[in-house]
Computed example of a mutant assay.
Amino acid sequence: MSVSRRLFLAALGVAGVSGGSLARAGELPQPLVLYDDELKNGFQNYSWAKTQLSMSVGNGKPIRVEGEPWSALALHHEPFSTEGYSKLTFVINGGKDGGQTLMIKAMADGKAIDADFAIQLKAKTWAVVEVPLKDINAAGKTIDTLIWQGQAAAYPGYYITRIQLE
């Protein structure tokens, strides 16, 4: 990780984290990085919102997302177990307008797992968000996608980076 990237994350209050991988049987999983300046560890962009990957913002390259009602940022991977992970963490910024309400969900077999976990973004403010996997009904399950879904209205652009399972 570059010095400028470490300084950027330090300014956001994010501790440096290694770029984990899917755990082998009998091993404790390391943080599994989905996105950090680019998609990692086999994750792919399956979004149905307008997304721009690796946008240059300050010293980082977050994803910029904006969308129509019910659109979502969706990061997909071949099915994998969340066993050993307890939370999803990410750094997010509401952009110049803020106010976006996003539902955080996991998907299995292409279908959203029912959960009611929502966050509301603040304008021009970076925030570290921790989502307990039990709160999105994804703890100890095999999943294939994580989504950040807008609600019943179109929403202005926001930025998200340093997405990982811990």
Rank of each mutant, 00 (worst) to 15 (best):
residue 1 M to N: 02
residue 2 S to I: 01
residue 2 S to L: 05
residue 3 V to Y: 06
residue 9 L to Q: 15
residue 12 L to H: 09
residue 18 S to G: 12
residue 21 S to R: 12
residue 23 A to R: 10
residue 24 R to M: 05
residue 27 E to W: 11
residue 32 L to T: 11
residue 32 L to S: 09
residue 34 L to R: 04
residue 35 Y to F: 13
residue 36 D to N: 14
residue 37 D to A: 07
residue 37 D to L: 00
residue 41 N to K: 07
residue 42 G to Q: 03
residue 43 F to N: 12
residue 49 A to N: 09
residue 49 A to K: 06
residue 50 K to I: 07
residue 52 Q to Y: 02
residue 53 L to W: 00
residue 55 M to E: 11
residue 56 S to D: 08
residue 56 S to Y: 00
residue 57 V to M: 03
residue 58 G to H: 07
residue 60 G to A: 12
residue 63 I to N: 08
residue 63 I to W: 03
residue 65 V to W: 04
residue 68 E to Q: 12
residue 69 P to Q: 04
residue 72 A to P: 02
residue 74 A to D: 13
residue 74 A to H: 02
residue 76 H to T: 01
residue 76 H to M: 06
residue 80 F to V: 10
residue 91 V to Q: 15
residue 92 I to W: 11
residue 93 N to G: 14
residue 96 K to G: 13
residue 98 G to D: 02
residue 100 Q to S: 13
residue 107 M to W: 15
residue 108 A to N: 06
residue 109 D to P: 00
residue 109 D to N: 15
residue 110 G to T: 09
residue 110 G to D: 07
residue 116 D to M: 03
residue 117 F to M: 00
residue 123 A to T: 06
residue 124 K to A: 11
residue 133 L to P: 01
residue 134 K to N: 02
residue 134 K to L: 09
residue 138 A to K: 02
residue 142 T to P: 03
residue 146 L to C: 08
residue 149 Q to L: 07
residue 149 Q to D: 02
residue 151 Q to R: 10
residue 152 A to F: 00
residue 157 G to N: 09
residue 162 R to N: 13
residue 162 R to H: 13
residue 162 R to Q: 09
